[in-house]
Amino acid sequence: MIRSLFNLLVFPGFMFLVLSGLIFEWLDRKFLARFQRRVGPPWYQPLADLIKLFSKEDLLPKNANDLLATLLPLISLSSVLTAGLYVPIAGYTPFSFEGDLIVIIFLMSVPTLAYYLAGIISLGIYSILGGGRSLLQFFAYEIPLLIALSGPAILGGSWSVSSIMESQGRLGPFIIFQPLGFILAIVGLIGKLKRDPFDIPKATSEVVGGSLTEFSGAKLGFWNLVMDIQAVVGIFLLIDLYFGWTKMGYPILSIVIFVIECLILILILSGTSAIFARLRIDQLAGLGWRILVPLALLQIGFVILMGV
């Protein structure tokens, strides 16, 4: 009982995920700044921003539904936190069961729907536009992402992330067999996190702040936390599914390797943000359906053949 509470609240639950989210945000902003010849923020900046947001006034347009506006970020936060419980960290996972990959993917999609709803209930023009775009974008990247992520599941013979990880201990890391799948998963993750080049819903020059234009104060603080934690859960998931040979003899070694893999993935995400321009929504939809989905199907076909 105490153990479960510890797992829920501290590691790998609430505190660990929040801390990882803040560290991720700091690393991301630091890498991006270095790519752009800037210095970048100090290590405590994301925490400072969060505290600042929680101390600010909470305003909403007059007729917007305050209850929903409060519930949506909280529901999203609890979804990503719950998803984070099932993702093995350096091989350690207290709660895992058969089929948890599907649950994780489902829980990770809840924030996207909540983001769309948040835009609608805000009643501002920019929020509605941003919300609509996020839903359009969702359809463009989610399908290739799902197809790509089922690759490791088929190869590992299970829908539980920890079992997939263990089978990589026997077969070797899956990135060797599914490099295309890995790239597609990264692209899908960028879309899910609404980062450049897929930050169309939040494109400042076009829709000011997207769905969250009218949010402020504690609600916005929660939304930022949701985005950060979504990012770390996504990164952990990708590491487990594609680099899952971290269950080695010495726990310290697994942790070090896990951290290095996290850093590499964050570097990849920041690098793509720095290099690419934002796509238009029609270009993204075209990319998603005409290129990503066929490639994903190709990868799956290959995996199935290999299994046979």
């Binding site: 991006l32 752009q36 800037r38 450049d196 020059s205 720095a274 290099i275 321009a277 934002r278």
Partner: peptide, 16 residues
Amino acid sequence: LAKHIGLDTIFMHTWH
């Protein structure tokens, strides 16, 4: 122009 199309990196470099 770069900032508006999402290429923040070019924005930082040109202003530098």
